[in-house]
């Protein structure tokens, strides 16, 4: 599935406060954009707006002519601050559920587990995992159910130096196959050709 992302003249308010206005971005296959800006500038809200969870005040979000609802349902992954994992369930159960929920195939699930070195963690309850391990578990969803557009909110923050490098490699591989990455970050993202600073 090929997808592109067009954001045109977007304005967004939260809690009565205007976060940004007139924001535009055109992201094609194989491109990544790093969203930067101060805390509370609206990076997360922009990602949520692209995912269809937040309605913008004005402007348009398009997916290269595809039906927005269909594109959101089967064409994008959202990896937010929260990982959507239940502490009382095992890592394997959670990964299996989310991979299936998002339409992943068992072979892709196995490859994702190996790529993120999760196999020895699968029988552990999520509550036993460290923040970095939980992050890797959440990132495995992206590989277990391949989708072109990745919306990532601080994807590297809880990871150690080794896994930051690994995840950047995973992003680069995704881009090389025509994928798109829109990531909210505080530090520069090496794989991102584009950068967009969000200001009021």
């Amino acid at each position: 599935m090929s997808l592109s992302l067009q954001i045109e003249d977007l304005s967004l308010s939260r809690g009565g406060r205007r976060l940004f206005q007139g924001l535009s971005l055109d992201l094609g296959p194989g491109q990544a954009c790093a969203l930067t800006g101060a805390n509370g500038s609206g990076k997360t809200s922009l990602l949520r707006a692209v995912a269809g969870l937040v309605a913008p005040d004005s402007g348009r979000i398009g997916f290269g002519g595809a039906d927005p609802a269909a594109a959101r349902a089967s064409g994008l992954h959202l990896l937010g601050h929260l990982d959507g994992l239940k502490p009382s369930r095992t890592a394997g159960e959670e990964l299996d559920f989310w991979a299936g929920w998002q339409g992943g195939a068992p072979i892709a699930l196995g490859a994702a587990v190996d790529r993120l070195d999760l196999r020895r963690l699968l029988d552990l309850e999520v509550r036993r995992l460290s923040a970095g391990q939980r992050r890797r578990l959440a990132l495995a969803r992206l590989l277990a159910a391949p989708r072109p557009l990745w919306l990532l909110d601080e994807p590297l923050s809880p990871l150690d130096a080794h896994w930051r490098g690994e995840v950047l490699e995973i992003m680069a591989a995704h881009l090389s196959t025509g994928g798109l990455v829109l990531a909210a970050v505080h530090d520069p993202l090496p794989v991102a050709a584009l950068s967009l600073e969000i200001r009021p």
């Binding site: 349902a73 601050h81 929260l82 990982d83 929920w101 998002q102």
Partner: peptide, 16 residues
């Protein structure tokens, strides 16, 4: 509430 707090509801809301 649990799905809302841990982000699972976000993932469910934009599913197929």
């Amino acid at each position: 509430e649990r799905d809302f707090e841990d982000g699972a509801l976000d993932l469910m809301a934009h599913a197929g």
